[in-house]
Write a protein that binds this DNA or RNA. Structure first.
Length: 430
DNA sequence: TCTGGGGTCCTAGGACCC
DNA sequence: TCTGGGGTCCTAGGACCC
């Protein structure tokens, strides 16, 4: 074990949504419980008891109706506001165990920690047990912790911690006997590895890579030839070489989706208009809450994918400038809808996607100060007001900037009403 | 009859510019 | 008249994640 190798942990709430419900309703303890998706259509969370009955993640409710009746399974609609609040507290508690740079909120119920600097201060398994106990005591949620030399290893270890009670909720790969680890990897289907989905599982099988050990022992180069850099990284990570960093700050969204399935099929364009208008409002709320603007919008409507013919058109409407204006965006969405709407169809789903997202102009000073932090393509928008206030010049610009050797080059998009040709132009007027 | 919602990244290929 | 290559940008599609 090299002294310089990094150490990561993944902390994960067990059966998150069910566990959150149980905190406020202890009568649910020791009973099979499932939580449903938005339209009460699918199962999105299951208690251990429900899993034991063979109820699978993502199953449509109607397929397990009999099982549910037979075993008196508690069925609940989801309450995302509750889960989000519990998640916030869960993350805050973990924040007391590491520095802000060492914590990544990965999803509502998962948190990566970097523990590299703690291994000489604490026994890491004990430290992880402390986290578990604190979370259990303060907010009543059960969690498991996996520890390894990379995020992928930490994920794997977390899986082991959950499946094998002997670990008592904490699995530290670094402490494991190599032979036992090898056996565990061999017993684990390759599809359980983080980053390996259904399609890749099939392809890996054709290459005779069937379990986690096979993949760990594969040559990264060989894997790169058959897959992409993503899978190559997965192999390296499995081998204990950290390739994926902790993201301690939440990056700006690159797209914001608001979409829903309809309980009953929708046939009239007016009903779609109504639904899409609501989605626009929801999406813009999220856009604004993060001080972002968007410059194009995707509109999608779909018939049931379980029925033929499956009609699922998609259109992108570009705006001439980045905005968060409700009326403007809604108008664009209505326009797009008219392009793709076909009558006599049974629509089951619709959605709005805000794209081409850029920071609100109020971040411009930060961008100026930190411009060497921006390494690659990044959309930069400067509004008319911003230019007037800051630079006293009447200009509007939307464009992609490429950062090269501390010089900005700016390529205007076709849509720009007018544009500045270089970053220096802006600096000069200043 | 009933089948979730919200994201990211990578790659390939075409358009376009110089 | 014919012919080129490097580079960027954009999009679609496919894969993955929770």
């Amino acid at each position: 074990m090299q002294p310089c190798s990094r150490i990561f942990a993944l902390v994960d709430v067990n059966n998150c949504y069910v566990s959150c419900e149980r905190v406020f309703n202890p009568a649910l303890n020791n009973r099979p419980v499932v939580v449903l998706s938005n339209n009460d259509g699918c199962i999105v969370a299951r208690s251990a008891e429900a899993k034991a009955l063979g109820i699978k993640m993502g199953m449509p409710l109607f397929e397990v109706r009999d099982l549910i009746k037979q075993h008196d399974v508690v069925v609940m609609s989801s309450n995302y506001a509750l889960y989000a609040e519990m998640s916030k507290r869960f993350m805050a508690i973990l924040g007391q165990f590491v520095g802000p740079q060492e914590q990544e909120i990965y999803s509502i119920d998962e948190c990566f920690l970097e523990l590299t600097d703690y291994s000489h201060l604490f026994n890491l398994a004990d430290y992880a047990q402390q986290m578990r106990q604190t979370i259990a005591k303060w907010i009543g949620l059960p969690v498991c912790v996996g520890i390894g030399h990379s995020k992928t290893q930490a994920k794997l270890a977390n899986h082991f911690a959950k499946k094998n009670p002997a670990f008592n909720g904490v699995c530290n790969l670094l402490d494991l006997d190599p032979l036992i680890l090898e056996f565990m990897l061999q017993s684990l289907d390759v599809s359980e590895v983080w980053g390996v989905g259904r399609q890749h599982t099939k392809k890996l099988a054709s290459l005779n890579i069937l379990n986690a050990l096979d993949l760990t022992l594969s040559s990264p180069k060989f894997i790169r030839q058959h897959f992409s850099v993503v899978m190559e990284r997965t192999v390296l990570e499995l081998q204990g070489i950290a390739c994926i960093e902790i993201e301690h700050t939440v990056p700006d969204k690159k797209q914001i989706i608001s979409s829903r399935s309809f309980g009953k099929p929708v046939t009239k364009i007016d009903d779609l208009r109504e639904a899409l208008t609501l989605f626009v409002l929801r999406a813009i709320d999220r856009l604004r809450s993060q001080n972002l603007l968007c410059a194009s919008i995707g509109i999608t409507i779909k018939t049931s994918r379980f029925q033929k013919p499956y009609y699922h058109p998609y259109i992108i409407v570009s705006l001439s400038y980045a905005t968060d204006d409700r009326l403007l965006i809604n108008k664009a969405v209505m326009h797009g809808l008219e392009q793709i709407f076909k009558p006599n169809m049974q629509y089951k789903h619709a959605g709005v996607i805000l794209m081409n997202i850029v920071p609100d102009s109020k971040y411009l000073p930060d961008l100026l100060a930190d411009h060497d932090k921006i390494q690659e393509r990044k959309l930069l928008t400067i509004t008319l007001d911003e230019i007037n206030n800051k630079f006293g010049r009447d200009a509007v610009s939307i464009g992609s900037c490429t950062f090269k050797d501390r010089n900005w080059s700016m390529a205007q998009t076709r849509k720009s009403p007018s544009y500045l040709t270089s970053w220096n132009d802006i600096l000069r007027v200043n």
